[in-house]
Design a protein around this nucleic acid. Structure first.
Lengths: 251, 251
DNA sequence: TTGCTCCTCACGTCACGTGAGGTGGC
DNA sequence: TTGCTCCTCACGTCACGTGAGGTGGC
């Protein structure tokens, strides 16, 4: 480039040299962002060294996501506060990342939902999305990401095994409930043990996760939560299984 | 909502109920995505229960970033492969996140550059951006993120101290070079020690980082790298400081 | 008659991509 | 004359926002 000092560049040459398209250079010309200093007799754009340098700056500034407007303001020397400009740009990118991560989490949840259904349908998809919305009411974004990571670490097998575990537990509990067993009866001790184990595996023993999960479990319709496996009677019985005689709850 | 079964909704009502704008509903109507089943005598759009349900689905699917086109294809029951659709959507979001993180890293580097300059100017900004481009040639994205995190953990003070450290070292080395000292001389042992300490602090002792740094140091113009502090003579002398007599280099 | 809700255009956004139709030789 | 480079419109993108100007009573 410096060897060609003094040369005039045609659009095509300049486009090839910078990896831009001719159309892009036309666009910058029309915007007034990069106007060639000369035209040939036939009207061809001729760019001088100054414009080439300016173009390299434009390209550099584009690489941090600045708008052409902002770039023009910077290069035209209007008093732009650099710290302020880049600070706001950084904030904007941070917001983008946050938003994209929310989308990503929802999408992985859907993917997992599609996988676990035999024949995925739109109705099931909508159910999954409603479940996602519900989870987002009780868990923070951070907690949801931790849940997702845990699912990935644990693997599909273990998740399926855990679901079978819950099914077994609720079947047993329902049997005892129907038989009229007192929910605090020692016969349910082994169930309580298994529940504690599964919960620990799901929440990683983190108390804030436990709290969010309990909130959801207490407020939402259990049939929705468990795909019909647990009704309100069973849910209430289950809660009493973990309630100490003084009314405390440690489930 | 279910209490209002059978009701016809005007756009305004529906907009308020869903948090959308009237314009959005007009837009969906024009696209054919959500067409009200009736019009009043005066031409008012009247939405029935089916359309309301459809709208809730549209809103749900929008929440994972699907285009209105994709949503229409899904809801109109054209045979869309759900796993494929959401797989591609996930890939797209992943690419977005990756790209945004690259931008973010560049922006933090610029922010740090602006902070360390007394009066930031556009020229200094462009210098910083060129430095960023140079680093991106030698380090992987992952390495650059690790460098950035290290900078954050270490703090501005320590970075400034490290820079002063390098300045002192190079001043000393230049003195010995000018005095004709052999680069392997034991007088330079304390310098070598300090260099090893600073390098360990910068790279965290990770060998891949060391390799990338050496590549850059060996190939790029040292004056650019050190803002004029080190010229080629001094760089070569410095390299010989760490080269064993058999030609190996452990710097 | 006055509000209020609704209606249909239609331009603008952001940074170009993609032709169409034509001239001229940096 | 044939290519090749260049030129100037001008529409399209994506999901609406924002008026303008007007009618009608879900």
């Amino acid at each position: 480039v410096s060897a060609d000092a003094g040369k005039n560049w045609q659009v095509g040459e300049l486009a090839r040299a910078t990896g831009l398209t001719v159309r892009t250079l036309h666009h910058y010309d029309k915007l007034g962002l990069l106007v060639p200093s000369q035209r040939s007799f036939a009207g061809y754009r001729l760019y001088g060294d100054d414009e080439v340098r300016r173009l390299y700056r434009i390209v550099a500034l584009r690489r941090v996501g600045l708008s052409l407007d902002a770039i023009a303001a910077l290069l035209n020397g209007r008093g732009v506060d650099l710290a302020d400009l880049f600070g706001r740009q950084l904030d904007a990118v941070d917001r983008q990342i946050t938003e994209a991560r929310v989308l990503r989490r929802r999408l992985t949840a859907i993917r997992d939902g599609i996988r676990s259904d035999g024949e995925p349908s739109i109705d099931q998809l909508i159910d999954t999305m409603e479940a996602i919305t519900m989870y987002e009411r009780y868990y923070t974004t951070d907690q949801l990401e931790r849940l997702e990571r845990r699912r990935e670490d644990v693997g599909e097998e273990a998740i399926a095994a855990a679901e079978r575990g819950w099914a077994e537990i609720f079947a047993t509990v329902r049997g005892e409930m129907d038989a009229g067993t007192d929910p605090r009866d020692a016969r349910l001790d082994s169930c309580r043990q298994r529940v504690r184990g599964l919960l620990a595996a799901m929440t990683g023993g983190e108390p804030d996760m436990r709290a969010s999960m309990n909130e959801m479990w207490n407020n939402e319709d259990p049939e929705t939560l468990t795909r019909g496996m647990v009704d309100r009677d069973l849910r209430d019985y289950y809660i009493r299984m973990f309630r100490a005689p003084d009314g405390e709850c440690d489930g």
